[in-house]
Amino acid sequence: MSELAGAPAGGVGAVVFWASAGLALACALLTVLSGRAIRSAVFLLGTVLSIAVLYTLLDAHFLAAIQVIVYAGAVVVLFVFVIMLLGPGSEVGRQRRMKLTRALGAASLLSVGGVLAWALAAERPEAALPEGFGTVRSVASALFRENVFTFEAVSVLLLVAIIGAVAVAKGKKSQEPRP
């Protein structure tokens, strides 16, 4: 693997990988475990940025940029906005004692993850990295040549989502007069 250009080789690459992976996992855990929504949002931001770093390690520079712009710049900010909008309503109070069913659920989900991880951790053969892999030019070529129809469909989807979000969030004024 080390002979591949820009591959996450040993040395610096491995250090970056382990650091980013640890940070991503830790932030993910904290996102789920932290008691307050605003903290969860901040930890989500940490996970998203760590994964962006991993993208660069994986020679997906364009995608790393998109990850930072869309996730960190839009999605997480949207979360923060909503939390601010709801104010204290965004908190549900401290989680009461973890119920047995919930613990069982978590445990079984962990075992799902374990099995999946065990299955996927097997060794596999690798292939050589072609020229220009992951660059903006090549990804753009894949996007706008081979997948242009999907790209346009996604743009329509986004438009619909925006209209839908506005419609849902606005509500019916006649029914719910603002206090």
Partner: peptide
């Protein structure tokens, strides 16, 4: 949760 548990069964058999 139920869906995840079902997935576990299938996954175990596959993996």
């Amino acid at each position: 949760m139920a869906m995840a548990l079902g997935t576990l069964g299938i996954l175990y058999k596959l993996a």
